[in-house]
Structure formats: C-alpha cells, structure tokens
C-alpha cells in the first residue's frame, strides 16, 4: 500500500464520508455497550442509582459470582439446547415451505404468503397468549380436538419447552421462508436447465446447484435465527409464566430479568448481558470460520 499524499487525501475523504455513520453507530452501539461493561464491574443496585448508597467497584466480582452459580450453567445449557431446536425447526420449516411455494399455483402461494405474513406480523405477546388459549388445559381447542381434556401443556418441563419452541418456530419461519423463496427465484433458469440436460436428478440438482447458490442467504438466515432464538424472552416469559414451575423453563434472558433487573441488581444483570453477547459472538465467529474452511468465500 502506498502512503503518498494522494492516498492520504483519499483516506481523509473516505473518513469524512464515513463520519456520519460512525457517529450514529458510536452513539447507539458503542456507548451503550461501553456503559454495560462498566456497570458490570460495579455493585450497582437501585440504592446506588438513586444515590442512597456509595458505588462499590467489584472488578470481576459479578462475573465470578455468575460463573460459580450452578443455576447459571444449567440455564445456559437449557438456552443453548432450546435455541438449537428453535433454529433447526425454523430453518427446516422455512426452507420446506419456500420450496413448496416455488412449486404450487399462484393462488396457493398467495395464501401461504398471507398466512406466513400474518404469523410474522403478530406481536410476540399476542401470539404467545393466543397459543396459550389454544393449548389451555380445560378450554383449549387443541385439547378438545385431541381428547386430552385437563392435560396441562405448560406444567411438564419438556412439554412446556416444546410448546414454546413451536410458537417460536411459528413466528420466525416466515422470515426464512420469504428470504429463501426470493433466493430460489433468483437462480437463473439456464443453470437449472443445464443441470437437467446433464442428467442430474432433482436431489442432485438441489444439493449441487441450488444449495451452493443459496449459501450466502442460508448464512444470513442461520445467524439471524441463532441470535433471535438465543435471546428469546417474550415467548418464554408469557407462556411459562416467568420461567415455568420452579424455574425449570428459564432461558438466559428471562433469568437475567428475574435474577438481576427485577431484583434491581443491575451490575449482575449487565454481567449476564456481557456474557450473552460474548457467547453469541463466539458462536457467530465459529460458524463463519467453519464456513470459510469449507471453501466459501465470504
């Protein structure tokens, strides 16, 4: 790289163009994250916020307390498992319906899209509440159809997790479906024709032509889904009434809210927030590296 005056002038121009975006990013992202990290080093409760007690610098105290808690690790494990199931379910349902949408008549496709958009547009709290009504032990439609009168879906740990996961998949598959549908439609027909002429079966075409062409989109929807499903709050909070019986359906975000923010332990809550961010960054970086190793140009 040359470091002549011309290049320096170019750099300055580039910086000037970038400045507004950087300013916005700095104000909206860097500063809050910085505050989050700073708060996580303090014993920062309501007494400290309103000036009733002095600030105490704990250093990594909040983190060691958190990492030493068996409950935290149990919740973290639950969160990872729950998010994995939700991501796989969302991708499977979204991809299957995207393929279906390319194969059916326009009216059926329009119906499918309208239904999906309806699910997508439903606010999380409303969607969760409606699902609770449907699965109500005594008055729910599902139980009366299945003849399971009196069976409580939200009592058992696994049935409660299953119900919430189904709701999460329901409200997040439309994004995957529509993105992948657009991706499939953007594949030039010549490519598919060439594959057919070469005698490739439908399965072979899908595996060797369609999926590689869709890969950039698949990366985006997977990372999006991982981030969304790892951070899920509303569905778990509403449907399991704040974490299920004896907290056995807690996920990380609900745990952070209950143990830290509702209890005015903002320092501890900030520490949980930092840990969540780090976990998500690590997952994303590993995923991107794995893709890079498999030969994908990013």
């Amino acid at each position: 790289m040359s470091t002549g005056p011309a290049a320096r002038g170019q750099g300055r121009t580039a910086a000037a163009y970038l400045a507004p975006a950087l300013l916005v990013l700095g104000a909206l992202l860097v500063y809050p994250v910085y505050q989050l990290v700073v708060i996580s080093f303090y014993d920062y409760g309501q007494e400290q916020v309103s000036g009733g007690a002095p600030l105490v610098f704990l250093g990594l105290g909040n983190y060691t307390a958190l990492l030493a808690s068996a409950r935290f690790w149990a919740v973290l494990g639950q969160t990872v498992g729950f998010a994995a199931v939700c991501v796989l379910g969302t991708l499977a349902v979204g991809a299957a319906l995207a393929v279906l949408a390319t194969r059916v008549r326009p009216w059926a496709r329009t119906t499918l899209f309208l239904a999906a958009l309806g699910a997508w547009a439903t606010p999380a709290v409303a969607g969760s509440t409606i699902w609770l009504f449907l699965f109500d032990a005594n008055l729910g439609l599902v139980n009366s159809v299945l003849g399971l009168d009196g069976f409580s879906w939200t009592y058992g740990k696994w049935s409660a997790f299953g119900l919430v996961a189904a709701e999460v998949v329901w409200c997040s598959f439309p994004f995957v479906m529509i993105t992948l549908y657009a991706g499939i439609r953007a594949i030039p027909t010549e490519v598919l024709e060439a594959a057919t002429l070469d005698g490739a079966s439908a399965w072979r075409t899908a595996r060797s032509v369609v999926v590689p062409l869709l890969r950039p989109l698949l990366i985006v929807v997977t990372i999006q889904s991982v981030i969304w499903d790892f951070k899920v709050f509303t569905q778990v909070y509403v449907m399991t009434n704040g974490g299920g019986i004896a907290g056995r359906n807690l996920v990380l975000n609900v745990f952070a809210y209950q143990q830290a923010f509702a209890a005015s332990e903002y320092g501890l809550g900030a520490a949980i927030g930092v840990v969540t961010t780090v976990v998500l960054l690590v997952v994303t970086v590993f995923y991107l590296r794995a893709l890079k190793r498999s030969g994908e140009v990013l």
Binding site: V38, Y42, Q48, V49, G51, G52, L55
Partner: peptide
Amino acid sequence: ALAGCAPVQSGPA
C-alpha cells in the same frame, strides 16, 4: 476506562 467513568448516580435526596 481508567479515568473513572463510573456508572451514573443521581444526587442524594
């Protein structure tokens, strides 16, 4: 970070 940018506190009532 070392300059003591501590979290905000409102003054005592």
